[in-house]
Amino acid sequence: MSAVQTKRPWVGVLAWVIALIIFFPILWMVLTGFKTEADAIASPSLFFTPTLESYVEVQGRADYPKHAFNSITISLASTLLALLIAIPSAYAMAFLPTKRTKATLLWMLSTKMLPPVGVLMPIYLLSRDLGLLDTRTGLTIVYTMMNLPIVVWMLYTFFKDLPRDILEAGRMDGANTFQEVTLLLLPLSMPGIASTGLLSIILSWNEAFWSLNLTASKAAPLTAYIASFSSPEGLFWAKLSAASTMAIAPILIFGWMTQKQMVRGLTFGAVK
């Protein structure tokens, strides 16, 4: 790497510039959270007297721990459930493909192309009849379904890159399918599974359409918490920013801690 850096220093500079551009809105949000409402709408400025005013008000108006608890349980549970369903199906498609496998995969992905609002009414009515409105279980099921196509696809590509010979060798040694999956496939593709899981957690954490529509108060996650600070009138930017900062803080820290796995997983099999 150092050879590349000395030869082409602009690559490094460019990377920094792009990173800053991508990071800037988040930085601005964090800064705005520490401004007063009047400062927040005044001409953009990096210099201001920081205040915790908005944080105090946000704390007083909504129950953060309740929303955070919901976000954590729902995103973890839906990710586990999605992995549980996706691992066997991706295994089947990667190692025992039929002539319809490709079409099935494409069909699965095509369900992601439908705008969610198109199925709002059926899902809402189903949830109502099953008593799942405003429950963590209901939202977990919806998120599992929502992320399943992506999870299957990612796992499928990871599994496909594994040398089949290793699995065959296992079979020769007398491993049954279950042992083949648990003892060989899973350990070998751990980076891939980890990054898929992380992505699924992040997608569930950030999802706002279903969480706003299917929950009221008991199961409302952090996205609903943020939404409650947006307003069509009056000043609300600082409060909204403070709420958003608190809502993304856990996932940001989590992402930062698991950065290595994520990058490893995402580039897994990319260079061959």
Binding site: M121, Y124, L125, R128, N213, S217, K218, A227, S230
Partner: peptide
């Protein structure tokens, strides 16, 4: 127990809820 929403989101939300009971 409070559910506070922005006007347009609220309108959609309560309309769905009341129309579907």
């Amino acid at each position: 127990d409070w559910v506070v929403l922005e006007e347009n989101v609220l309108r959609q939300r309560v309309t769905n809820d009341i129309a579907t009971e």
